[in-house]
């Protein structure tokens, strides 16, 4: 049984039906078996060459297919704790409500607080509590999806556990990772946590309303982010004052269309 999500290795595949009824798993799902050489009578070497994240990636692929089937734009919001993901989501949902079907999956180690904040807007939210786990993985998302009405043809926002390290390595099947960096965290974060900024397509520089009170160098932060990921898009905004929200909403609409 796996410690992260409790599923067994002989587990049912992605949301049952389609994948489960296949006569056998696709080649890429199976172990790369290479004939074992017999070293002695009983002792031998077994070559596996198997990716440790293979199983997560398989579940992520299932999620991705499901999102596609239902025409949903799924985004994975990642950041350090307290950068403003939930505040930003609440404001985003308020702006998009009535125009798109919406849903949120909230990941936190403990409490339902963030999901409650989302539900207060009227948008359905499922809370995943990871306990000691420091990231969401694809199986958790797979299990959360049947717990909510799917936003057919709309948008699904996944707020990851506040952690700039390992959520970078776990594909959830999302269309894109969006990294939120707040100006109170320091310019050097993209260099200190390069994997996350490399994995993201968009960086939202949040809490820009606080810039007058800080020595934060916006240009430098953006230079560092581009050094790690030359293709990253960057939007400066504030989830509190609302500045920059239009650019973020336009980005969302463009991804939804495309």
């Amino acid at each position: 049984m796996c410690l992260t999500c409790g599923c067994g290795s002989d587990e049912v595949l992605i949301r049952g039906r389609k994948l489960m009824n296949r006569p056998k798993a696709p080649v890429s799902f199976r172990l790369h078996r290479v004939e074992a050489k017999i070293a002695e009578d009983t002792q031998r070497i077994v070559k596996l060459e198997q990716d440790i994240l293979h199983k997560n990636d398989r579940h992520a692929q299932g999620n991705r297919e499901l999102f596609k089937q239902h025409g949903m734009l799924a985004l994975n919001l990642v950041s350090s704790p307290g950068s403003g993901k939930t505040t930003l989501l609440v404001r985003t949902l308020q702006a998009l409500q009535g125009r798109y079907p919406l849903a949120v999956i909230e990941g936190d180690q403990q409490t339902e607080q963030d999901a409650d904040r989302i539900r207060a807007t009227g948008v359905p939210a499922v809370q995943i509590n990871t306990g000691k786990g420091c990231h969401l993985d694809a199986q958790m998302i797979e299990r959360a999806l049947p717990e909510m009405p799917l936003p057919e043809g709309g948008m699904l926002f996944i707020e990851n556990v506040g952690n700039l390290v390992c959520p970078a390595g776990f594909d959830l099947g999302e269309f894109a990772k969006v990294v939120v960096l707040s100006v109170t965290e320091g310019e050097d974060k993209p260099l200190k946590y390069p994997d996350m900024f490399r994995a993201a397509e968009l960086m939202l520089l949040n809490k820009c309303d606080l810039l007058p009170y800080l020595t934060f160098d916006v240009e430098l932060a953006e230079t560092y982010a581009r050094r790690v990921n030359p293709d990253i898009r960057i939007i400066r905004l504030s989830a509190v004052s609302g500045e920059g929200m239009d650019a973020w909403l336009s980005w969302l609409e463009a991804q939804h269309l495309g």
């Binding site: 796996c2 290795s9 172990l31 440790i52 994240l53 293979h54 390290v165």
Partner: peptide, 17 residues
């Protein structure tokens, strides 16, 4: 500490093999 969940994946890969 995601190494724990990764180590658990390693165990599953080995048990399957």
């Amino acid at each position: 500490m995601h190494e724990m969940s990764l180590a658990q994946n390693v165990r599953e890969i080995i048990e399957q093999a």
